[in-house]
Amino acid sequence: MVGDPDAELLLAFQRGDAAAFRTLFERHARAMVAFCNHFVRNPARAEELAQDVFLKLHQAAPRYQPTARFKTFLYRIASNHCLNELRRGEQAARRDARARPDDEPEDLDALPGSAPTPEQEAAGGALARAVEVLLDRLPEKQRVAFVLCRFQGLSYEEIAAALDTSVPAVKSLIHRATVTAAEALAPFAPGGEVLS
């Protein structure tokens, strides 16, 4: 695609240039780990998922058509992978809930990845925790659209392409997620109760 240097790199990789793939990995690895961490909140697991995404990118590269921007191609793979991971986690949580006796309350702080790390506590942990709780509350499609928009910086058009949906649908997903976010993050806004 014209004006997309990453797309040029992927096309170079299609032609056998292994260094081009290495450059793409170096450019996008950190953002990909951060993206995956919004779904699992476990740095080690997020790294595994990000590696999975790049393995899939490596496999899918021969099918890449330069009509799509590289970023949407990459985040389409990543979004599908993270949503599958989310669904696997929800299924496991439902299995655990069925296995747990009714009189035993669920200990939310004991759930994997939900406890704030010392680093989070030290650096605006309350806000980070509020965002985690917010993301957990969002339906999965809203969650992935919100993360792609607010944290990965994708445009509505790029998100629509990544999620294989229409721009009006993305507009609606992001609006609904943003309304929920505005309520959840109000205490952290200027004039709110909490300023981290």
Partner: peptide, 29 residues
């Protein structure tokens, strides 16, 4: 209200760097 709440996201701590050896582990996989 919405713009102020979203501005709070800018104050989130930067996401951590991948751990040492992340790239080497990827190429080994």
């Amino acid at each position: 209200r919405t713009a102020a709440a979203l501005a709070a996201l800018d104050r989130l701590p930067a996401p951590p760097e991948p751990s040492p050896g992340f790239e080497q582990r990827f190429y080994a996989r």
